[in-house]
Design a protein around this nucleic acid. Structure first.
Lengths: 239, 239
DNA sequence: CCTTTCATAGTCGCTTTGACCATAATTAAT
DNA sequence: ATTAATTATGGTCAAAGCGACTATGAAAGG
C-alpha cells in the first residue's frame, strides 16, 4: 500500500468513490486504514498509479483487487492537490466515481470477497453524514485525509448529473428488467428528496422511451406489496 | 521549464487553457515550444507543480509569468493521465480552464507582455480548428502532446456550463457596464451557434435580473452602428 | 372484506422556450 | 434630406416541461 514515501517528487494516487443505492439509501464503500497515518480511520480505497498505467487503469486494477465487478461505470471526479493533504509528504489524488448496483454489491459483501464496508451516506445543509449497519456514525471530518471533501464532491456531481444524463440507470440491479419504482428509489436516494411517482414516470418516459433508449418489456414484476409494475429495459448504453 | 525528466516517478504538470472571446470568436492562447519534444509546435502553457504548492497555486504562478491578469476565473478542467502522453516519460497533467476578457487580453498582447499567441478556435462535427491572424491554420492533432484533447474537453465544458451557470459573464470586458448584445456575442461564440436576440434577452433578464444579480444602469452605449443599447451591471460574484 | 400499498393515468396551471413579428433609434449610403 | 441598413427592444403564439394534485387499478395482508 502506501509506504516509503520520499519528499523528492509528488506521488500520485487514485482514490475510488464507490457508490451504490440499496435499501432506498445512497451508500458508499470505505476501507479501514491499518497503517499510519490515520490508522483505524475510514478512507476511500486508493492506490498509487503505476509508471505504465493511466489513472483509469490504476482505478480498474484497484477495483479488481477490492471489488471484482465488471462493466461498472467509472468517471473521473476531480483531482485533489493541496500540498498538506497527506501528512506523509506530497501526494496528489485523482478521484474516480464508480457506480455499482446494489445487488452485485450485496453479493460481494456477503461472500466476504472484499475488505470494504458499506456506509449509508447523506449530504444536506448540516454536512456529510455516514453510518453503517452496526450503528457506527461518522461525519466527513472523521474520514482520513481529505476524503470527506472527495465524498462531498462526488455526491454533488451525482446530483448534478442525474437529471440531465442517464447516470441514474447505472445504479440499476438489472438494466434489462426493472420497474420505474426501482428507478425512482434511485433518483430519490441520490437527490435526497422524495418525488411524485406520477411526475417521475412522465419525466422518464418522455425523456427515454420516445427515442427508444427505454422500452417496456412484456414482463411484470412478481413478488411486490402493491400492484405489480411493468418491467422496462434500458438500451441507451450499447451503442 | 521541462527538463531532465527521470523515469522513476510520475511528474505532475498543470496546463492552462486560457480562453477569451474577441471579434465575435472564441479564442485561446498557445505558446510555441522551443525545446523538444514537439519543438516548434504549439502547446498550452504549462509547468511542473512545485513540491509545496497546490495545482491551483501552480496555475496561478504560471499565469503571473505568462499573462499578468487579476481575478481571472480559474476552474479545474480534467486530469490527463495516459502513460504515453509525453514522450519524455511519465507526465500527468492537471488541466485548468481560465477565462479572461478580450480587452485585457488585447492590451497584454499588444504590449508584448506575454509570449503567448492568440488563436481563434472552433469545434464542430469536423473536429477542432485553430487559426491565428496570420492565416496559420491548425487542427487538434497539430498541437503538442494531447493538447488537442484538452482543448476539446475545455470547449465542451464551457458549452455545457454556459447555459446553466453565470460563466458567460466571465468573458465580459467590463462586468459593470455591458450591453446585452455584447453578452449575446459571447454566448454565440462559445456555443458556436446564432441566437435570436429577443429570446436571448428574455432568457438573461428572466434568469439574472429577477434575483438582482443583473441590473440595468442609467448609462447607454455610445459609439455603435444601430440603436444605442442600455448598459447593465452584473453583481452575481461579489457575495 | 376492507385496508394498505404501490402502479398508472390524467388534469390544471404556471413557466420556459423557440419561432416569429413589430417597432425604435441610431449610422451609413444615396 | 431621404432612404437603407443595423442594432435594440418589446411583444405574441404555440409547444414543451413541470409541480401539485386527483383518481383509479391491482396486488398483498389482516
Amino acid at each position: 500500500m502506501r509506504t516509503g514515501l520520499t519528499n523528492d517528487q509528488p506521488q500520485v494516487t487514485v482514490d475510488l468513490l464507490i457508490m451504490t443505492v440499496s435499501g432506498e439509501r445512497l451508500r458508499l464503500l470505505l476501507s479501514q486504514r491499518v497503517n499510519p497515518p490515520f490508522t483505524g480511520q475510514w478512507a476511500l480505497p486508493g492506490r498509487f498509479i503505476g509508471l505504465n498505467e493511466s489513472a483509469e487503469e490504476a482505478a480498474g486494477r484497484l477495483l479488481e483487487e477490492m471489488l471484482p465487478v465488471r462493466n461498472a461505470f467509472l468517471e473521473q471526479l476531480y483531482t485533489f492537490t493541496r500540498a498538506d493533504r497527506d501528512p506523509r509528504g506530497r501526494v496528489i489524488s485523482v478521484a474516480y466515481l464508480l457506480i455499482v448496483s446494489g445487488r452485485k454489491l450485496r453479493t460481494l459483501l456477503a461472500e466476504g470477497k472484499t475488505p470494504l464496508r458499506c456506509f449509508e451516506v447523506a449530504l444536506d445543509e448540516e454536512g456529510l453524514r455516514l453510518a453503517d449497519e452496526t450503528g457506527l456514525a461518522l461525519s466527513g471530518e472523521d474520514l482520513a485525509f481529505d476524503h470527506g471533501r472527495i465524498v462531498e464532491t462526488g455526491i454533488r456531481r451525482l446530483r448534478g448529473k442525474i437529471d440531465y444524463t442517464d447516470i441514474g440507470f447505472r445504479f440499476l440491479e438489472n438494466p434489462d428488467e426493472f420497474s420505474l419504482g426501482e428507478l425512482q428509489i434511485i433518483y430519490e436516494a441520490v437527490q435526497g428528496t422524495m418525488l411524485d411517482s406520477s411526475n417521475f414516470r412522465r419525466f422518464i418516459l418522455n425523456r427515454y422511451e420516445k427515442d427508444g433508449r427505454l422500452s417496456q418489456t412484456d414482463q411484470m414484476e412478481k413478488r411486490g406489496r402493491g400492484r405489480p409494475a411493468a418491467l422496462y429495459r434500458f438500451n441507451g448504453w450499447r451503442s
